[in-house]
Every structure is written in C-alpha cells, then in structure tokens.
Write a protein that binds this DNA or RNA. Sequence first.
DNA 1: CCTACCGATCGGTAGG
DNA 2: CCTACCGATCGGTAGG
Lengths: 201, 201
Amino acid sequence: MTVTDGRLVRGQLSRQAVMRSAVDLASVGGLDGLSIGGLASEVSMSKSGIAGLFGSKEDLQLAAIAAAAEIFQERVIAPALTTPAGLERLRALIDAWIDYSESRVFSGGCFFAAAAAEYRARPGAVRDAIAAQMRRWNEFIAGAVTRAMATGELPADTDPPQLAFEISALLDAANDASLLHDSAAPYARARTAINALLARH
Amino acid sequence: MTVTDGRLVRGQLSRQAVMRSAVDLASVGGLDGLSIGGLASEVSMSKSGIAGLFGSKEDLQLAAIAAAAEIFQERVIAPALTTPAGLERLRALIDAWIDYSESRVFSGGCFFAAAAAEYRARPGAVRDAIAAQMRRWNEFIAGAVTRAMATGELPADTDPPQLAFEISALLDAANDASLLHDSAAPYARARTAINALLARH
DNA sequence: CCTACCGATCGGTAGG
DNA sequence: CCTACCGATCGGTAGG
C-alpha cells in the first residue's frame, strides 16, 4: 500500500472525519446509542459503507474510544506539557481540562466521563478500554503531583494518587453539573475547591 | 376504587415489583437501554402487560426515576434523619450514601449518577426529572451543612452549596471508580478526602 | 464504497 | 392482563 494510492488516501481522510462525528454523537447519545445507521446518515454515507470501515459495532465503539483519546491528548495533555514540570504544569493541566470540558470540544461534554458512566457496570472489551484510559489519566495527574513535590511546591507528605482522585472528582463533577443544569457555575466551584486543595498542601 | 378490589391490589403489588426491576435494569443498562420487552421478560409478563402499566416508554422512564427516588429516600435520607442535626447528621448522611453505593442497592451502583450521565445532554422531561432530583440531593447536603454551622461544629464562613458540591463530587467519583475498576478502594479515598475537608472547616 | 436483503428487536396499538 | 400484529430500526452480510 503506497501513500499515493488515491483510494487509500481518501479512505483515511474519510475515516478520520467519520470518527470525529462518531465521538461527538457518542458523547451525547452514548456509545451504545451510537448506531451504524445513525452514523452513516450523519456523514452521508451508506450504512454498509460505515460497517465496512469497522467490521462490527464493538469495533466501531473501540475505534471511537481511541479517537477520543487522541483528541484528549491534543487538547489537554499536549498543552500542559509545554509548561515547566511542577505546580505550574499541574495547574496548566487542570486549566486545559476545564477548557476542554467547558468549550464543549464534544457536544455532550467529556467523552470519557459519559462512556465510563455508561459502561462501568457492563463487562467486556469496551469497558476495559475505557477503564485503561481513565487509569492513564489519573496516573498522569498523579505524575504531575509527584513532579510538584520534587520541586518543593507541594509538601513531601502529599499522597499523589489521593490528590489525583480528588482533583479528577472535582473536574468530573463540574462537567456533570454544567451539562445537567446548563450552567458554567460548577466550573467556578471546581476551581475554588482545587485552589483550596493545592493551597492546603 | 376500593382497597378490597382484588385486581387493584394485585396491580399495585405487581407495579411495585416491576418498578424495582426497572430501576435495577436501568442502573446497569441505562434508562434508554431499558426496553419494554426486556423488562417484560425480566418480570415474566407480556410486553403489552408492561406497556399497559405505563403508556409510553417515557412514562416508564419517569416512573423509574420516581421509584429510585423513593428507594434513595429510604436508604439514605431517612437513616440520616434519625440522628441529631449538625455535624453528626452530615456524617451519617455521607455514611449512608457510601453504604447505598457500596452495597449495590442497584446492580449498577447509584441509579441517579448513571441516569444523570446518560441524559445530561439530552433535553426533555427525563433530563428535567433527573436534574430536579440532583438539585434536591445537593440542597439536602447543603442544608445539613447549614445545620452543622448553626451548632458551631462548622465555622460561620463555610459556604454550604460549595461544600455540598465538593462532598457530592467525591461520593460520585467513588461510585464511578469503584464500578469501573471493581474495587472498594475509591470509597476509602472519598472518606479520606471528606474527613480532611470537614476537619479543615 | 454501493444496493438489497436477512432475522431480531424496538415502541406502540387493536381487540379481547 | 393476554395474543397478535404494525412500521421502523437495529447489527450484519451477500454480491458487486
């Protein structure tokens, strides 16, 4: 397969555009509510055109999780990595996440929060993939906390996984409440709580 | 309609049992995944028997929300109300909620956490009913905080809605992570965080 | 990538 | 509360 194969290039471009729509649809209607037919009409393709791109519905769901992870990387992780390690990077990470949620990168808010709530009690490959992403995210926050301890900006008795749990809890709650009540106020509450948390440490 | 009408009595008993199954199914598979046919086979009734009890799927969903609210009242609110108002009642409320989530009163964990995540981006009567229940719950926590301020157990500059937001964020995060990772550890993290929060105030 | 089709299930209703 | 049915949509496949 060469890069100059027109069909391949078109196929890849189309697949990327299809995935962007798939993730957005799933953030609102759920990964289970994401139907092959519904996605097909959203992107003006035939149902079997979509089916052919993925193979099965579960493959489509797993592809959506991978695509969402890429966008999360671009929007949240990458911007934070441009700042110096330590408390500044931890704060940049929190700001980037709030911006990612509040600016509605996905119509239904954070894709992973929605997907985790939907599949947390349904064993299988989809739940495993979501759990792996969530674990990565929490470990990334904990790593940023550890770096801020190394610079002396957070005290040596800080418990990184515990603080990461608390930070992600407050971020998720802001995402949840903002969507449920059509309000930006929960983001301010999360910022207030996280600032107090970091000031206390 | 008299209480001695056999058909009525049986109808009410059956409706209650049906609702209990409906809420449990919805806690795992979502309020949208709750199908009339699926519920029918779960309780060994005909599909139109279930349909006749409710009228429409949306009515079934709204009835499930109301039934879940009743069980939540029994399991979380009522036990807390047997303790004296103040910090003790606030702590009883938190303990009761953790027990309600951890003991899997519903197979999929807290029904409202699941329903809120599913419908928060889908306007309509179902979302409105869930939002109203969530608002009530947060106001109840805030009220308990206010009482603990009145007894002097929490300082006068405490912000009740802010503290209620933080407490419910930590509880929801424990429910989420416990289900997603099949672990009881997140409940201990939530307890640790909430204890620190209350000790700081 | 398409049309055309499969069996299964969806929400809902007629009629009893 | 039941059987029997309606049109629509589901995931998936055959064949091109």
